[in-house]
Design a binder for these strands. Structure first.
Length: 780
DNA sequence: AGCCTCACTGTTTTT
DNA sequence: CAGTGAGGCT
């Protein structure tokens, strides 16, 4: 048992439950940790107590998180408790743990240890090519459809052959899909590459196919700790199971600790299954369960709001967060006229908080979709507030960065055809599609890689210009490869940039954006040098692995004084003194795409809950009445989740219920900035059939007509059924009747499908544009 | 081969 | 809106 005494600093300040979570010893422990209940602290102290009590060597500990950031934080905390005694511990994400294992074991199953990792963009590119080659698009297969399906299959551990056994071969599109899946799998194999999902799935397959290999790791890891267990998908779950199994010669399985909170499960879309945590006790009979419900982060008001919201999810174990911190300030609500107006509110409040002494890096702004950053950014820039965006279009996804990285990939893994193709004609060197196809054919016929075929340029009958270009590329790659042995990653990259003139050419371009691209490439060069400095023994492969696995929240050093902007997903696991949740509207939160998915609205509610519980002191919730999306402005309704926050907790500066209506003349932004008080309404009342009168005036402003009639406080209460005229056929000359505008005649119909717009001349109300699908109209 | 323009399309969250 | 693909021109 533990050698710790009650006064040991490891147990200092812990409540009885936390303490039990640190001290319990047994084969399986589930820590149900509500938001802000100190789970990271408990987890690290648990690790520390295992080491201090000499119950385990550091190398016997495997701690798994979902993000590198969480892993880094845990490592840091463990180091501050244990110092050098953390050496040899595996504290890393699922994905990087798997890469580590796969690199060691790749030779067992037809890969080499310098395999490439394909991000989702790479796999889409590959899938796109395969769909084209197999003319699979004529069977209705799309790139996103196929890549989504393959990803789901892999997360469920269905490889091609197991899928083939179960698929219905009578369906031609199924057959075609199988063909694509099979080709894709072979392409990955021959490119010596794994996609993201493979990293997990292949590790599981490896363990299952080679029990003696699995045993090596089972013997090694005696204590396995998993964070955010509610977000594990089937592959991750199986991986944990494989690792905690008894070895062939009877060594009992490792002790397993999982931490999670089903209320914070927000990754169902990538296969996460809450049941993994719900059924933990069934999976591990005799498991100990510890509940952490005391919250050390937020004020009671914030927790009450969070509890109010989450209690609307039914299939959950009831648990209530509580705190001894006290009530705190009310939650501030604001309804903007537009996304810009909303952003202005955010900026104003941030300035006020700053003036009151709060540092910018203690504040964060959350949103549901990355697209929402646009308006926020504009206003932040205009107001000269320092901010940083976490996630979004990632540095490593930029075309110029991928180009340059592809050179490094080709050097590390010449089998990677995708990477070879990417650099073949970048920068332009006269190797076009025709040449590429010929090279590929030659490679296929001789069963060599595309990279190898470059060496035979002279004998392929190309013109002198083309074959010269190919030979030069080939020898450049050879030279750089030779340099890998001697030089650092930075040296190799510098040489490649020098020889290809990549940045020089960008700088010579007259496209202004190319200068920015050149700077990005310079930054990448700086990154490699930084890597060389921090990892004197680091290899090119190590560098590429690190780069492939960085995530949105990872590159954040929040020491600097900036406000952080991020999606609600990225926000998980973080906390801030002041939190702004923006865009709390129907169609956005819950997102329209979630409506059709089973459990969608409940998951969106959890997302909102995650956002709320990030806040320590102050919480601001805002929405906009209209929002531009896909170049069009649409009106929006308050999110259904707003009414789940007890009204007395909120202080509405500008409420969705009694906010002013605004006229169809479209004033608003220019005037007072915020629309003034007034009656009438945002949103509508009455029966569902006349709700949602999205009209578009000829002036271009999309607006809701003021609705000077009694209404429920929450306009969206009555919109559970959205009007849908999807099938309504209209043509010029038709007479229609609108719920508000009366009768009119159609002058023109534009757009397609759901975006069909009728241009209508109303007899009294004048000319309007109406979205046919949802306008309250009927043909007469 | 390489450049241009035009039209079209999907339109969430991420390791 | 943004990223892509086709088609036409040099």
């Amino acid at each position: 048992m533990s050698l710790l005494t009650p006064s040991d600093p490891l147990l200092d300040g812990l409540n009885p439950e936390q303490r039990e979570a640190v001290e319990y010893r047994g084969p399986a422990l589930l820590i149900v940790a509500g938001a802000g209940s100190g789970k990271t602290s408990v987890l690290t102290r648990r690790i520390a107590s295992l080491i201090r009590g000499q119950e385990a060597w550091p190398s016997q500990i495997l701690a798994i998180t979902f993000t590198n950031k969480a892993a880094a934080e845990m490592r840091e905390r463990a180091e501050s408790m244990l110092g050098a005694a953390t050496e040899g511990m595996w504290i890393s994400t699922f994905h990087s743990s798997c890469v580590r294992i796969l690199r060691r074991e790749a030779e067992n199953f037809g890969f080499t240890k310098n395999f490439t990792i394909y991000d989702s963009h790479d796999s889409r590119t590959l899938i796109k090519r395969i769909i084209k080659e197999h003319e699979a698009d004529t069977y209705g297969l799309t790139v996103s459809g196929v890549s989504g399906k393959i990803s789901r299959l892999k997360n469920e551990l269905n490889d091609v052959e197991s899928y083939a056994r179960n698929a219905s071969m009578s369906d031609p599109s199924e057959r075609k899909f199988l063909e694509v899946y099979r080709t894709y799998t072979r392409a990955l194999q021959s490119a010596n590459a794994f996609d993201f999902d493979d990293l997990l799935a292949q590790t599981v397959f490896l363990f299952r196919a080679f029990p003696h290999v699995a045993d090596v790791y089972r013997r090694k890891f005696r204590h396995i700790l998993v964070d955010e267990y509610q977000d594990t998908n089937h592959a991750q779950y199986s991986l944990i199971h494989e690792l905690t199994r008894e070895t062939e010669d009877g060594l009992p399985g490792a002790s397993l600790t999982v931490v999670g909170d089903s209320d914070q499960s927000i990754y169902a879309f990538r296969g996460a299954d809450m049941r993994n945590i719900g059924e933990f006790e069934r999976d591990f009979p005799g498991a100990k369960v510890v509940m952490l419900e005391q919250n050390y982060r937020s004020t009671q008001n914030i927790l009450d709001a969070a509890n109010g919201v989450i209690s609307n999810n039914f299939d959950r174990k009831d648990k209530k967060l509580w705190t001894s911190i006290g009530g705190g300030e009310k939650i501030v609500g604001f309804t903007g006229y537009s996304a810009h107006d909303e952003a202005q509110f955010v900026v104003d409040e941030i300035s006020a908080l700053r003036a009151a002494g709060m540092d910018y890096n203690k504040m964060a702004v959350f949103y549901r979709t990355n697209a929402q950053t646009r308006a926020l950014e504009e206003i932040f820039i205009r107001s000269a507030l320092p901010y940083r965006i976490l996630g979004g279009t990632k540095f490593y996804e930029r075309a110029e960065i991928k180009d340059v990285l592809s050179y490094l990939v080709v050097i590390a893994n010449p089998a990677d055809t995708l990477a070879v193709r990417r650099i073949l004609n970048v920068p332009k060197r006269g190797i076009g599609p025709a040449t590429e196809t010929q090279l590929q054919n030659y490679a296929d016929q001789n069963e060599i890689s595309l990279r190898e075929s470059l060496r035979s340029a002279d004998s392929l009958g190309f013109g002198p210009k083309v074959s010269g270009a190919i030979s030069r590329l080939s020898s450049l790659l050879d030279e750089a490869t030779a340099l890998v042995e001697l030089g650092s990653v930075g040296d190799v990259l510098a040489k490649l940039l020098e020889e290809t003139s990549y940045t020089t050419l960008l700088r010579a371009s007259r496209d202004a954006q190319d200068e920015a691209r050149a700077e990005n490439v310079d930054e990448l060069l700086a990154v490699t040098k930084e890597f060389d400095k921090n990892n004197p023994d680091g290899t090119l492969i190590d560098f590429l692995t690190e780069v492939a696995l960085v995530a949105a929240a990872d590159d954040l050093d929040d020491a600097s004084g900036t406000v952080s902007l991020m999606t609600l997903h990225t926000a998980k696991g973080l906390e801030y003194e002041a939190v702004f949740i923006t865009g709390v509207e129907e169609e956005l939160l819950p997102h329209r795409m979630s409506a059709g998915e089973p459990g969608g609205p409940a998951e969106e509610r959890r997302l909102f809950y995650v956002g709320i519980t990030r806040a320590r002191q102050r919480l601001f919730i805002s929405l906009a009445m209209s929002r531009a999306q896909f170049g069009q402005t649409n009106s929006a309704l308050p999110s259904r989740y707003l009414q789940e926050i007890p009204a007395e907790l909120m202080d509405w500066r500008q409420s969705p219920g009694n906010g002013a209506g605004f006229g169809s003349d479209g004033r608003g932004l220019s005037g007072s900035g915020r629309f003034g008080a007034g009656s009438g309404g945002y949103g509508r009342s009455g029966t569902s059939s006349e709700s949602n009168g999205w009209g578009t005036t000829e002036g271009g402003w999309n607006s809701l007509e003021a609705a000077p009639r009694p209404k429920a406080e929450w306009a969206n209460r009555i919109t559970n059924k959205v009007r849908d005229n999807g099938d309504l056929e209209l043509a010029a000359g038709d007479r229609i009747r609108h719920a508000d505008f009366g009768d009119g005649s159609v002058s023109q119909v534009t757009g397609e499908g759901a975006k069909r717009v009728a241009h209508v001349k109303f007899d009294v109300a004048g000319a309007k544009k109406l979205l046919i699908k949802i306008a309250p109209i009927e043909k007469i």
